[in-house]
Design a protein around this nucleic acid. Structure first.
Length: 122
DNA sequence: CGTGTGACTGACC
DNA sequence: AGGTCAGCCACAC
């Protein structure tokens, strides 16, 4: 049980976001078991090992806006990757009503949680 | 251990 | 429908 596990949980849930869909920071935080921990998701993504190849670009604000600073390289990368996946990004925003990721019960049960050793009891 | 700081959010005009 | 504000959690010093 290291404190690092918090980030790892976040990473696992981010990894579960399907291509062409987006999730909010708060949504990821809730999935990771941190109901009000939206603010730690961004930093967690920034600190993620590149080897994980996380789809961090699929995480945006609850309002559908790209949270990365205007003019930053990362922001352009995020927008570009989303567009490549077919997500329409206009004026730095995404239509959450259309692209928001809605995990099914199966995904919640068989997704990242199933990979979590702590959740894999008998 | 207290304090400051984010890739945030929801409430309230 | 959009700007402002205070609360929030984990992490680094």
């Amino acid at each position: 049980m290291k404190s690092e596990q918090t980030y790892q949980r976040i990473w696992r849930h981010v990894a579960a976001i399907p291509p062409g869909q987006v999730a909010s920071y708060g949504q990821i935080a809730r999935l990771a078991g941190i109901p009000r921990g939206a603010r730690i998701v961004g930093p967690a993504l920034g600190r993620a090992p590149a080897s994980l190849a996380l789809p961090w670009h699929r995480v945006i604000s609850a309002s559908g806006k790209i949270s990365l600073p205007a003019g930053s390289r990362a922001r352009r990368v995020q927008i570009e990757r989303l567009q490549v996946e077919g997500v329409c990004v206009a004026a730095g925003r995404v239509d959450m009503q259309h692209y928001a990721w809605r995990p099914t019960l199966d995904e919640l049960l068989w997704g990242p949680a199933a990979m979590d050793p702590d959740a894999a009891d008998g």
